[in-house]
C-alpha cells in the first residue's frame, strides 16, 4: 500500500519537475522577440550583449538561495550557484558591474517585467502569462537549452 502511495505521488510530481522549464521574459514593448544563449549569458554575467540599437536591458534575479536561481545559472553556464556568486564578487569589487537586482519570487519577476519595458527576468514557465514575451527557455531537468 505504502509503495502504491509513493508511486502515485511520484507520477503526480514527475510532470511538474521533470519537464519543468525556466523561461526568460521581457516586456513586449522592448520589441525583442528572441535572444541567443550568448546574449543571455552576457546579460546575466555583467557584459554587454550587443543588442540592436544599443538597447540596455535591466536584468532581475531570483532570491540568491532559491532553487530556480541555481537551476537558471546552471542551465546557462553549467556552473553551480557558488561559482556564480564568486564571479559576481569579482565583478562588483573590481568596479566592472553590479549584480542583477534580486527579487523574492516568480510573481515579483512577472510584475516587474510587465511594468518595465527594459526589464528582463526568468521564472518557472507555469507562472507565465500573456503580458510578457518569452525570449529563451531552459529545461530544468535535462539541462538542455532551446532558443525561440
Amino acid at each position: 500500500m505504502r509503495l502504491l502511495i509513493i508511486l502515485t505521488a511520484f507520477i503526480i510530481y514527475l510532470p511538474h519537475y521533470a519537464f519543468a522549464e525556466i523561461v526568460v521574459i521581457v516586456n513586449p514593448r522592448s520589441n525583442i522577440t528572441a535572444l541567443t544563449h550568448h546574449q543571455i549569458i552576457d546579460i546575466y554575467m555583467g557584459r554587454n550583449p550587443g543588442l540592436t540599437n544599443d538597447q540596455k536591458l535591466q536584468p532581475y534575479d531570483q532570491a540568491i538561495d532559491s532553487l530556480i536561481r541555481s537551476d537558471f545559472y546552471y542551465g546557462i553556464t553549467g556552473k553551480p550557484a557558488s561559482a556564480i556568486n564568486a564571479y559576481w564578487a569579482r565583478l562588483l569589487f573590481t568596479g566592472r558591474a553590479s549584480p542583477p537586482k534580486s527579487v523574492a519570487n516568480d510573481s515579483a519577476i512577472l510584475e516587474i517585467v510587465e511594468k518595465n519595458p527594459l526589464a528582463i527576468g526568468y521564472l518557472d514557465k507555469r507562472y507565465l502569462n500573456d503580458h510578457v514575451t518569452v525570449v529563451y527557455s531552459i529545461k530544468r531537468q535535462g539541462r538542455e537549452n532551446t532558443e525561440h
Binding site: 564568486a86 569579482r90 569589487f93 573590481t94 568596479g95
Partner: peptide
C-alpha cells in the same frame, strides 16, 4: 583605482572571490 596587473590584483582583498 585598483592595480590591474594580474588576474587577482584588483580583488586580492576579496577572499570570497577566489
Amino acid at each position: 583605482m585598483g592595480i590591474d596587473l594580474f588576474m587577482l590584483s584588483e580583488y586580492r582583498n576579496v577572499g570570497y572571490a577566489y
